[in-house]
Nucleic acid binder design. Structure first.
Length: 525
RNA sequence: GGCCCGUUCGUCUAGCGGUUCAGGACAUCUCCCUUUCACGGAGAAGAUCACGGGUUCGAAUCCCGUACGGGUCACCA
């Protein structure tokens, strides 16, 4: 006989205010996959007019990493997707909100009562097996050819727990303060089904599920208990998380039923895959793949190494978020460049893909290039000044900064690119491109620039006037553009690449232009 | 290995039974624009829709199987 546990269709769930949560574990910096999960939660919540909470799942005290929580909060803030409630929302609501605390370690006392409830209803039991006992059993099973021993409906009958031990013995051990855990009593042979928002119906037989630990020996709940209890008590309506949680979702579904609680809707997101080879993108990939896997720089106290972040790499958060949103989702139209607000409006869980997405850094850079051009001028100038300062360049005025920046904007993916190869805008060239000098700086070259210096002196040194005077000179002498142009450029900039030389000359002015021509005359002749 | 999930151009993807011998973007290449490099514009190349069976008048789209890929199997989340 196979029993069926189908979740009842909750009608009123649809009328509830949407509440979602991002629930990372503070075991290190968030990586981009985690940020995407947070982003999808945020987009869904905002679009539905609901709440986005941040809850910290720090029930494993052995894996706590100092600074990780602050990093997570800062990363979300940088992305523009700060939580409405919970950790990081203390400035919006007292204590972060009405369901405080939002750190599971601080909620420790309340989980015990829920575990007791399961104990009382017969859906959980005490287990006294020590870690050593379990290890021994697993080892024996492995020797016998079973590499994957599980504590389940079959094996629990031969273990030390409240289902096998006499009641008095159980009580005696409890009274003696003996260590124990509380395990879920997995039903024997039932089909657990639930409808995932992204994957459709998912079905698993409880024969394949084990008696997971709900409450650990240290009194802390495991993820499974804490997550279900918190999601319920915090009125979470939709659980949007990574696909790595899919295998344990049936257990969570069962727990909701055991508690007789309304079950939230589930949406298991496809994973972010590494561009090379196989497997999901991992924190440990660091910078090895040639691109950052973290939103912000992360300094590892133990190794002393710093892993780079998108922010420090020069990405705009809008571009980072836009790029992440498109890794696994798309609006169904040809539009690819979105602001956060536009993403909120266009987002749709039903259009999230099922298959994992391989990350491509080239595309990420393209997104930044697009967003770079959408930045407000004032912000760009400020960023440009910061980049220039970092390179030891001083800019006379905002007007100069703006003009200099715009000259190189066309070819930039990052604001810093506008300073690459642009040193001649700020100082006279100290060297000249040897190859091009060899090709273009002919015996007639000194004559050209000497003539031009005089011709340009007759103009107001505006871009248009300079260009007209130049062309008139060429026509007059019967010279070709390609014959004289590069020579002039070489003298002024030291290179033959870059934006219009007349614009450059207008920017640096007559004095500098003439000085450079004189300098080139001495240096190259 | 068990269980679960997945599989459209190199990559991200559109497509939700017929108007698609499959559309867009990144990357690649060509041409135009340009004194140069870019930007921009116009093109090219690139997918027997993993494979094999069905269902159907008709399948990338529905069903089954196979292969391959991924995830997961802790007193970690």
């Amino acid at each position: 006989m196979v029993g069926y546990l189908c979740p009842p269709k909750e009608k009123h769930m649809e009328n509830r205010r949407v509440r979602v949560r991002f629930a990372p574990s503070p075991t290190g910096p968030l990586h981009m996959g985690g940020v995407r999960t947070a982003l999808y939660n945020y987009l869904f919540a905002k679009q539905q007019g609901g709440d986005f909470l941040l809850r910290v799942e720090d029930t494993d005290q052995t894996r706590f990493v100092p600074g990780a929580e602050a990093y997570i909060v800062e990363a979300l803030k940088w992305c523009g997707i700060s939580p409405d409630e919970g950790i990081g929302a203390e400035d919006k609501l007292p204590n972060g909100g009405p369901h405080a605390p939002y750190r599971q370690s601080e909620r420790k006392p309340m989980y015990r009562a829920y575990a007791d409830q399961l104990l009382a209803s017969g859906h959980a039991y005490y287990a006294f097996d020590t870690p050593e006992d379990l290890e021994a059993v697993r080892e024996r099973a492995k020797q016998a050819g079973n590499p994957n021993w599980q504590y389940n409906s079959i094996t629990r009958t031969s273990m030390k727990n409240s289902l096998t031990l006499p009641e008095e013995e159980v009580q005696r051990r409890l009274d003696a303060g003996e260590a124990y855990v509380i395990r879920v009593k997995m039903p024997r042979n039932e089909e657990v089904k639930f409808e995932d928002r992204i994957r459709g119906w998912v079905s698993v037989n409880t024969l394949n599920l084990d008696d997971k630990v709900l409450l650990k020996g240290d009194g802390m709940p495991t993820y499974h208990l804490a997550n279900v209890v918190d999601d319920h008590t915090m009125d979470i309506t939709h659980v949007i998380r990574g696909e790595e949680w899919l295998p344990s979702a049936p257990l969570h579904v069962l727990l909701y039923r055991f508690f007789a609680w309304e079950q939230p809707e589930f949406a298991h997101l496809p994973l972010l895959l590494r561009p090379d080879g196989n497997g999901k993108l991992s924190k440990r990939d660091g910078d090895r793949l040639g691109f950052p896997v973290f939103p912000l720089n992360w300094h590892n106290e133990e190794t002393g190494e710093t892993a780079s972040g998108y922010r420090e790499r020069g990405f705009y958060p809008q571009a980072f978020v836009n790029m992440l949103a498109f890794l696994g989702w798309n609006p169904g139209t040809n539009q690819e460049i979105f602001s956060l607000e536009e993403l909120v409006a266009a987002f749709n869980l039903d259009k999230v893909n099922k298959a994992g997405a391989r990350f491509d850094f080239d595309k990420a850079k393209w997104f930044n290039q697009q967003h770079l051009r959408l930045q407000p001028e004032a912000d760009l100038v400020a960023d440009y000044r910061a980049e220039a300062a970092a390179r030891g360049l001083s800019l006379p005025s905002d007007a100069f900064a703006l003009a200099a920046m715009q000259l190189f904007m066309d070819r930039a993916e990052f604001i810093g690119d506008t300073l690459e190869g642009a040193s001649y805008l700020f100082a006279d060239p100290t060297s000249y491109d040897e190859v091009m000098v060899g090709k273009k700086w002919t015996a007639e070259a000194p004559g050209y620039v000497t003539d031009l210096k005089g011709v340009f002196a007759q103009t107001d040194y505006s871009e248009a006037a300079l260009e007209n005077a130049f062309k008139a000179y060429l026509a007059d002498k019967g010279y070709g553009f390609g014959q004289v142009g590069p020579v002039l450029r070489l003298a002024i900039a030291g290179t033959t690449q870059g934006p219009s030389i007349f614009t450059v000359m207008q920017l640096i002015g007559q004095e500098a232009s003439e000085r450079r021509i004189n300098q080139a005359l001495t240096a190259l002749s």
